[in-house]
Structure formats: C-alpha cells, structure tokens
Design a protein around this nucleic acid. Structure first.
Lengths: 179, 179
DNA sequence: GTATCCGTATACTGGTCGGTATGCCGACGA
DNA sequence: TCGTCGGCATACCGACCAGTATACGGATAC
C-alpha cells in the first residue's frame, strides 16, 4: 500500500484522533497519557507531537473533529448521544467551566445549536397545529436539557430510562397531550 | 481557644473537607493536588493523610459530606444546584462511569432520589387534580433531567436560561397548560 | 539514481506530585 | 507534674509523564 506523504499524514492524524477520542473518554483528559493514545493508534509519541502541538491541542482537536452534529429532527437529538461522545462532551464542559475563553466559545456554539433546535420546534408546532407552551428558544432549551439529562441518567442505569421516554417527553413538551 | 482532641480533629477534618470541595471543584480531581487542598485549609499534607486514606478517599468523603439533599418540594430541585456542587457532581459522574462499583452505588442512590421525586410528583398531581402525562417515576426522571440539563446550560451562559424556565417547564410536564 | 527532507521511532530529561518516615508539640491520663 | 500518645508539620523519595533531541527510513525532487 504505497501512499503519498499527504495521504499518509492525513491517515496518521485520523488514526490518532480516533484513538484519542477513545482513550480520553475512557480515562479522562488528565488520567489519559499521550503514550496510551499513541499505543492505541499503533504509533508512538513522536507521531502525536508531530501532528499536534501538545496534549491539550490533541484533546481540543478531537472535539472539533466530532462536534455536536446538528440534529436533523427533534427525535434524533437524543440518539446522537453515544457513550463516548457524552463522556467527551462532559469532560469538555468541565474544561469550559474552568476557562472563561473556552466557556465563551461553548456558549456561542450552544446558542447556535439551541436556535437550530428552536427552528425544528417551530416546524413541529406548525405541523401539529398546537400552540407552544413557551417561546421556541425556551422550548429548545428544554428539549436539549431533556436530551442531555436523560442521556446522563441512562448511562448511570439504562434500566431506569425507557427507550421511548425522550420521545414521550418531547410530545409532552410540544403540547401533544394525546396517548 | 482550648479544645479537646476530638473537637480539634473534627474541626480539622471539616476544614479539609470544605477546602477540598472548593479545590476539587475549581481544578477537577486529577488537576487538584493534595498540597493545594492542604494549603487552602491552612494546613499541610500531613493533616490530609492523617485524616484520609488517600486522595480518592478525600474526594469521596467530600461527596458523602455534601450529598444531594433530597428536595423538599419540586421547585427546590433546581435551586440546590450551586456551581460548586454541580461541578463536583459532574466530576463524580465521570468517575462513576469509569468504575462499575461506583456506578452501581450511584445508580442505587439515583433510584432513591427519583422515587423521592416521584412521590412529590404524585402529590403535586393530586393537588392539581390533573392526570400525569406518564407514570410518576417517569415524570420524576424527566424533572431531574430538566433540573440537571438546565443547570448545565445556565453555567455555560446564564443569560440563555431565564430564572423561571425550570418552574415553567415543571408546570408543562405536570400537565398544567395554564398561563 | 541520488541527495534532500519530511515524518515517525527511540531515547532521554526535568518537573511534578502522591505517598511515607520521622520529628515535634500539645493534650490526655495518673 | 510527668510520661505517654496522638495529630499535624517537615523532609523526603520514587514513579510517572509531558515534552524534547536526535536518529532513521522512506518518499520526493531533480
């Protein structure tokens, strides 16, 4: 398998990002070591420091690489929470809480996400023909809180959160009292 | 100020727990150092290792000391989220995700909390005389998800979460369509 | 084909920090 | 009042790890 330098470098970087996502999610930013990431990628520390400034840059690159995908519809807002991603997101939230600059960036992105969800909320309300119980951005905040909050509970104890609970909660919040 | 040994030891322990809560919340479990905790308490590492087995024991003791106070009523479920406590809780959640034993204990405690909230939900529904949109434990899970989820958003950007949003979300979820 | 250079492996270092061994002082029991 | 002991301070150690310096092999350019 002969590759150009560009291809090779891109492949190495991608391998490192995948490995780093896994290792950071499993051990957390501080407990995870650069050597662990390198080994998980089948490489060595040299590859890491050749592709990233330092450990923090690697961590932030992982998050940029796997950004919150904007949900295409409300129901999928919950499905996008696989375990690894939720752990990374939580680590990052803690990081943001401790660094004002990072927090501002997260706030900006959160607003964009919320507004995107608000548009979906408006759309859903129009389809159903029922009034929203609050402004669309407020309902969007509620939907996102439900999505995250239930996902957190589900990871503590999956049995305590029925698979369809988010969908039903969504129906309640959107003003659908049926069933 | 002459104190007996018992009093002195208890005071030292309490001081350390308070300092540890602060330092762990500010820096996170791994980044926080035992020396920092000791210094914040106006003591030294010797005091820490005289009162706690090790760093992890100190961390877990902080959490036991400041356990989720069971809310007296639904509205106060949200108020109990001051910044420090939410950061510690989140750190602990991550810790639990990585250690099955800890996770099981957290799951047990979460069930107790949820059932407690479910009782409050039942009570509120009876007072209002409206049917719940789901079983009481399910509504309780939703309420807790909202509480945590909105608190997380509020710490990212307090302006994005109106003060009364939780209360209004609560009314929606409890089947109160008025206002 | 050959010289160059880029990207990764290897080897190493300095600093940090959890944990320990020991000293010291003040409370306790008699 | 005195000897003992318990609790905290001090000094220290060893391990771990982020980051660096350098070696090396294969792709690239000519």
């Amino acid at each position: 398998m002969r590759r150009t330098r560009q291809e090779q470098r891109a492949a190495t970087r991608a391998t490192l990002l995948d490995a780093a996502a896994d290792v950071f999610a499993r051990h957390g930013f501080h407990a995870a070591t650069v050597d662990q990431v390198a080994e998980a990628a089948g490489l060595t520390k040299g590859a890491v420091y050749s592709n990233f400034e330092n450990k923090e840059d690697l961590f932030l690159s992982v998050l940029e690489h796997r950004l919150d995908p904007f949900p295409a519809d409300l129901a999928s807002a919950f499905e996008s929470h696989d375990r690894t991603w939720l752990l990374l997101k939580t680590e990052f939230w803690l990081h943001a809480m401790r660094d004002p600059d990072v927090r501002f960036k997260l706030a900006a992105r959160s607003r964009v996400l919320r507004d995107r969800v608000a548009a979906l909320v408006d759309q859903a309300a129009a389809e159903r023909g029922v009034p929203l119980p609050a402004t669309a951005p407020e309902v969007a905040s509620i939907v996102l809180a439900l999505s995250d909050g239930l996902a957190v509970q589900a990871l503590i104890d999956s049995a305590s959160v029925p698979d369809d609970l988010f969908a039903r909660a969504l129906a309640i919040v959107l003003g659908d009292a049926s069933s």
